[in-house]
Nucleic acid binder design. Structure first.
Lengths: 343, 343
DNA sequence: TGCGCCATCCAAAGCGGTTTGAGTATGATT
DNA sequence: AATCATACTCAAACCGCTTTGGATGGCGCA
């Protein structure tokens, strides 16, 4: 059932039917209702392909996912971000287009999205320091929003980010207030922007108390259980081990906990742990009482916000870049407590 | 730069240019090369919207993701499946369309995909027993492949699945051979097809050794860390606790480990654990030596296979349903050992 | 020389909508 | 009664590509 057929059935022209359905004013209300009813009755859905061609809009938002043979950093949070963004797209009649491409064709993937006209805008994931994709988007001339920020990028752009620096600064201060003097940082890979900011927050907090950074207490790696375990193990084996850890993710936090408990220590009593919790739907940090004390910020919510921002930019374009800095909550769980007395 | 412009520049008709680029035989080789060169030089990409309208094909595969307010079961494996499938789509010039919709509009989402012509086929995720979506797809008349199977569905359909029953049967037998007499099952939600099959495999193995099922040793819940912890804790607190666990996922396995180690027991010595490992890229089960003994089957690979199968069905349609049963490997790690001697 | 065939190329008709530019009643204005 | 907005409605162009159904010209063959 297409427009023409429907029009014939109604004894109207396609023009009028189209206008009636799309809410144009120059059509009699009685006619409009007749058309609407017929459309519903015959279960008419306009062909998206035709709409797209006629209007020149793609009605779709692109997400390019590099296959990331080396690091799969973004993966765990990706599903939740997508859920939030996708929800918003659906509500607004947009499709979500995912391009999974080999690392080396990432740039071409973005160019194609634009030149083949298959997306009206894109969302950039997992920005790195001075990320080349930002100038690329400007060059290509496609609306975009970054989930995160890119330190050192000078040109303006729209973004949605968590205040990673402040989150880790507050967490560090919280541990310091509990009397912890040696705090280990189990960070993500520090070419990722969020990891840089978290380390800065950690460093700032220590500096403001006049404490020096100890490189032995700072690690940076992928956020897997194993690497959390390794990093924490190494630090706990130091002559002067940390009494607390600041950990970049729930999953590495599990590795840290394993390292702690494997040494017969109790998390929350002998060693305190604070993680960053992306509030992933399938990786809940406990229920009533959180397992881990955490800086929490919902990545799904970030997805919603980023999608809304992008759709706004696309529809009323010509605006200046927007941005939104989300504050993480500091949630107290069972994994923190006062620093143990010196042995 | 569109076809017409390119044709004008070349002094050819759009017809010829189109044919040259699409490899039709009725064009002079010299001309073809000239066209190809010009296309490359001017960086010409055909407009996908126009191709779709003209050919009547969507060149896209749909994945409908219900928002799943209640259970987020599919989420953790989703990212990896998508990566595998998406990779295949890209290689074949197809787009991946994700529709994130509220649970109650799931059916409508599939219907729209078809009637609005935005997808040539769909992949069904996380099938349940007697899943209503399978008859729905037949009714709608859209090519589809199921990732998993739906017990009790009689009509034929195409699927890619892991041999869950055999995997858990083998794992159970392996534990029995190690002398374990009481084996706890920490299963996923048993309205999910894979969970049903796993329980069957577990039950079959016990039955073939003439052992009775003990309901107290069988749990079924979402596959989260917490519920793994809860299920294992409850069983370990029994008067006659299990000496081994069969666990549905890596994540619940972490909860099981926490329950074991929290009781001062050692995993692999006092209590053995076998998990099912989806081989997720961000949740590696150790590296050289796996942490957990596991039945392993790559969900990313399943994504690739399902995508290939679907594309094949779409291009040479009229075929009878295809299917592919993947066998899980049984990987020996550090979490299993002989049953401890009776206290 | 004349004819048919083949290799090339092209004009034009879609695909299914949207949108521009008119056309036609209708009722109000003068 | 003539004029003119106003309210509706429609024919046709268009979006950018594919594809059908010829055209054209060169060549082999009788």
């Amino acid at each position: 059932m297409n427009l023409k057929e429907l029009a014939t059935k109604l004894g109207l022209s396609p023009t009028t039917v189209s206008r009636a359905l799309n809410g144009y004013p120059e059509v009699n209300e009685a006619t409009r209702e007749r058309v609407m009813a017929a459309a519903k009755r015959h279960n008419y859905r306009p062909n998206t392909r035709a709409i797209r061609l006629a209007t020149g809009r793609a009605l779709a938002i692109g997400h390019v996912i590099p296959l990331a043979t080396r690091h799969e950093i973004m993966n765990p949070i990706f599903a939740d971000f997508i859920a939030g963004a996708g929800e918003t797209y659906s509500r607004n009649g947009y499709d979500m287009l995912l391009s999974v491409v080999p690392d080396e064709s990432e740039e071409q993937a973005y160019r194609d999205l634009k030149s083949r006209g298959s997306a009206d805008g894109v969302i950039l994931h997992a920005p790195r320091m001075n990320d080349p994709r930002i100038p690329l988007m400007h060059e290509i001339g496609i609306p975009f929003v970054v989930h995160g920020r890119a330190t050192d990028t000078t040109e303006p752009y729209s973004w949605v980010d968590v205040n990673n620096r402040r989150a880790f600064q507050r967490a560090t201060e919280f541990l310091l207030d509990l009397g912890h003097m040696r705090i280990g940082l189990v960070n993500g890979l520090e070419f990722m922007d969020f990891a840089i900011r978290r380390r800065t927050g950690y460093a700032d907090a220590l500096a403001s108390r006049g404490m020096a950074l100890d490189p032995a207490l700072m690690s940076s790696d992928e956020m897997t259980e194993i690497s959390g375990f390794r990093a924490a193990s190494a630090m706990l084996d130091l002559r002067d081990p940390p009494t607390a850890f600041l950990v970049a993710s729930m999953i590495s936090g599990m590795g840290v906990r394993r390292a702690i408990e494997g040494r017969g220590l109790a998390m929350g009593r002998d060693v305190s742990v604070i993680i960053h919790d992306d509030d992933l739907s399938y990786l809940k940090n406990g229920d009533a009482v959180p397992i881990f004390t955490a800086t929490r910020s919902s990545v799904r919510e970030a997805g919603r916000i980023a999608a809304e921002m992008l759709l706004a930019i696309i529809t009323q374009q010509g605006e200046e870049p927007q941005n939104r800095l989300l504050e993480a909550e500091l949630i107290i769980g069972q994994s923190t407590g006062p620093a143990p007395r010196r042995a």
